[in-house]
Design a protein around this nucleic acid. Structure first.
Lengths: 199, 199, 199, 199
DNA sequence: CGGTAAACGAGACGGTACGTCGTGTCTTTGA
DNA sequence: TCAAAGACACGACGTACCGTCTCGTTTACCG
């Protein structure tokens, strides 16, 4: 029936997928050394063997490329927790977050939070891809903990998420105190007091 | 013996105090409109009727000026809480913080957190003047609350501070949820469960 | 053997004649406003509703299109003189040239002279179509004047042509003095002294 | 009396005279090879060991630098004629012009005429420095010729100048015929018929 | 009171990056 | 084969800030 299934068949010469990949790779490398300020369109283009206008064809400015590179990277995509008791899973997941924050890559996360302050598009991307993913995963584990009876269910789950992630980001960004697994354990202990198992 | 106790008596023409003030004023204005990226040494110098080298004579770079301007400003120096029950004081103080964060000036706070990511000096200044002040005030109130018997005393006070301020900054920076007084109240309710009054 | 006698029967889809016309029309319009620098392949393609490669299929670069557009236009193709005495015809024709040079379109002529400096092909086209035509017409009139006894015949006709057109173009290009009919009349008067009628 | 004779004492750091010289030198070299299109701000800056903004601090764009470089160069500043009979001087001077036009440097002159078509400032500079100088010198010689009785004095001197220079530039720009000393001689012969010595 | 030293305005300067425009070529799809 | 659309490398554009510097001028203090 429908002669043309694909909803938006592109006209003209298709984009070379290697171009995009090369740009992101270059941005990732520049982000690793030098941090966000090292991610310039000039530098990306040089490193990727691509012309400057080509970079602009894909992204509106350097931080946008950096953000996407970050989100693609290992730091951006935190690994999912394994399978165990819900609270054990939660602990494992937050340990992973804490480890990532404490590692050099944590500076990238902080840089991205910083970058997301100036541009709406960046903020949205960061929120949707990085923040939301972490919260979604944790939210699901919390729900499981309630079903398992390890946590009480009457509290607002969003508040609980803020109580977990807030302090972690707070320490990451302010640097007033270290981010280690003991800190995570104390956060979870506090959480259990806020939402104690019924009975 | 030593006729001159003051350790570094300045020689030559003394600095005109108006210069410094004019620079900070200009920086504050630029910060208000345009945010941090609008605070350039060029712009400051123009606006303050001062030459560029003069700005550099006082501060090493533009963000430093911005930071000092911010810390001098009303947003940077949050008002002290009044006198009442300790928990009431805490609530009042955090309400003030939440109000400031929710107001347009909150963007300046976020910008400063962002700026503090790239430079150690800025980070230190921000931590010492803005973060530390808020924590000190809140820490004192918490101690008072323990003395008054409104909160239990066995928990780590630093963790409690992180549980209060962490979520506030987290929402400020991520923007995933509003910062209002209800949110503050729920934070304090959670705090009372984490550190319940003994007996 | 040879199934096809006609020397170059085109294969495949024939060129749409409207394409070529649309391109020239667009170039003419761009030339009118903005002058030669406004005639870009990008602009032409946009305006003509044609893709850039299509433009390049017809002409090697933007100035070539501009040149052809110019030569097609009214300014490029100066109207022929009427029929009267040879000297009257000459005067009429040069008046037309002077009028064209003094009008806004004269800038186009100057632009074409300028453009013809950088590229041989353009120079040739301009010389063959614009310069040569004008000289041919004038040369013919001069010959008639000699036959009519209005001018002497011993001088080099090419020199006479240079003495007529040289000053006109000189003023057009340098702009140091106006180009009006009085100037033309004085040129012709000078010409009559250079090649006085015999006897 | 006048405490301050120098009319406009410059404030701020004075310009390093070597900077300006280096830029002009670079432009001259680029103009020699490659012609006008080779004179880019990028190229000048590279070659002069100067930053791009510095070039823009002195001139508004590349052609302006090229024009000034041209006017400074040997081609731009044609040598003055010697001392002899006025007509001999005129012949000598025009021979020099013809030689310069016929030499490779003549292309530079043509390029400058072309460049002067698009920008008013360039046109003015070219007219005032190159065209006017040549005309002034020739005008003076013509006046001397009249005083000497070699030419008649009743004609418009400006027309005579146009009759001399017009054909020279015309041939330079159109390239329809060579520019040699014989051509100059025939121009001067024509001139003597246009303005014959009285009696 | 006159010398000295610093503050200060002005602006030059090299440098890096920006975002844009135009060029000419190439690749793909479709007529 | 033509044509439309668009990707792409290249090169140049003109601008914005940066941080440093070199001047000349002004203003305080101090011997």
């Amino acid at each position: 029936m429908n002669r043309q299934a694909s909803p938006a068949r592109p006209r003209g010469r298709p984009r070379d997928p290697r171009t995009r990949a090369a740009i992101l790779k270059a941005a990732r490398e520049l982000l690793a050394r030098g941090g966000l300020t090292a991610v310039t369109v000039d530098g990306i283009a040089d490193r990727a063997g691509v012309s400057r206008p080509t970079v602009y064809r894909y992204w509106p400015n350097a931080p946008s490329v950096a953000m996407e590179a970050f989100l693609d990277s290992a730091v951006g995509a935190l690994p999912p927790a394994g399978r165990g008791g819900a609270l054990a899973d939660l602990r494992a997941r937050l340990h992973a977050v804490a480890d990532a924050f404490a590692a050099p890559g944590g500076r990238s996360v902080a840089a991205m939070v910083a970058a997301a302050q100036s541009e709406t598009e960046l903020a949205k991307a960061f929120r949707n891809h990085f923040i939301a993913r972490n919260r979604d995963a944790a939210r699901e584990i919390l729900a499981r903990a309630v079903r398992e009876g390890a946590l009480g269910g009457e509290g607002d789950p969003e508040l609980l998420l803020d109580l977990l992630f807030g302090p972690l980001f707070y320490r990451l960004l302010m640097g007033h105190a270290p981010i280690d697994r003991g800190f995570v354990d104390r956060l979870i202990a506090a959480l259990r007091r806020v939402a104690p198992a019924a009975g």
